[in-house]
Design a protein around this nucleic acid. Structure first.
Lengths: 145, 145
DNA sequence: GAACCTAAGTTAGAGCTCTAATATCCGTCA
DNA sequence: TGACGGATATTAGAGCTCTAACTTAGGTTC
């Protein structure tokens, strides 16, 4: 089966271009794409647990732990024990973290706007719909085997 | 900017589903997605250089070197010095490598067929076209900044 | 109250990925 | 002939990602 017929190949190429561009625009802000994702969800959900953050970012707990350790070493986040659930750590942005997040977000949003500007409303909806059906069929395929 | 409006988020979700499913179906074959990609291009281009293979796989030379070292340790590939260009190593599948590749390919193609079966011809073309335009605008955006 | 289940956090180990730097070889050009 | 430029290969180091396993805390059920 030739690569050009594989939808997966086209999906991968688009994702690679997205990652390469996002990594390039985020570099001046001093964060990786994964770190930006964590900071973004953290800014919208102050005090969230690491496990919940992992679910939002679409990664596993050990992965988010790696990312948070790097952010904590740089003083961009802080983790404090939860009052009642002593097994939980509340994670929050620090003031420097909020600054870095604002800078990185502005840069990332610029990419998203450029990407969105390429398409008409109908095309965007079509793309989102087709991608959603990809997820559906792939998840179903994985569960069945 | 909410995540649901970001085309990049939808792209990432689809790519994550693709990777998760491919990793799951390839696991019984004993190879990772990256290793399968290398074996596939290697089977179609016997004796190719590592640098050329890296370009086909869409990764950097150090990355393909990591992957090839793992494959070589398991005896699935062999690297021999080029006759004239003494700086180049010719990389080839071994017999066990060909067997693993055939098994893995059958499994991967099953996923691609299931994915393709979800869409009509027109939908597939539309998706490929839209993804191609994503790559174009993202590459342009990266070059300009 | 005790056993159990669920969830959170963490550690260990393997693998992929990049950038930066280095070494080597080949070809070309002055 | 000798210097330079381009390509290949490799190493070092940082970071992301997963699975597997372990520890701990909290709530539920008997």
């Amino acid at each position: 089966m030739p690569a050009s017929e594989r939808l997966g190949s086209h999906l991968k190429l688009a994702e690679q271009a997205l990652m390469a561009t996002k990594a390039a625009v985020l570099k001046p802000a001093g964060v990786t794409v994964a770190q930006y994702s964590a900071l973004l969800h953290l800014s919208e959900n102050p005090g969230i647990s690491a496990a919940a953050l992992a679910r939002l970012c679409g990664v596993t707990p050990p992965t988010i732990n790696t990312i948070l350790n790097n952010l904590q070493d740089r003083g961009l986040i802080e983790r404090t024990p939860h009052e009642w659930h002593r097994n939980v750590l509340e994670t929050r942005l620090t003031d420097p973290g909020r600054e870095v997040m604002a800078d990185a977000d502005a840069r990332a949003v610029r990419v998203e706007r450029a990407l969105a500007a390429e398409f008409t409303d109908g095309e965007r909806e079509a793309l989102v719909g087709l991608l959603g059906r990809c997820v559906e069929v792939l998840d179903k395929e994985r569960r069945e085997r």
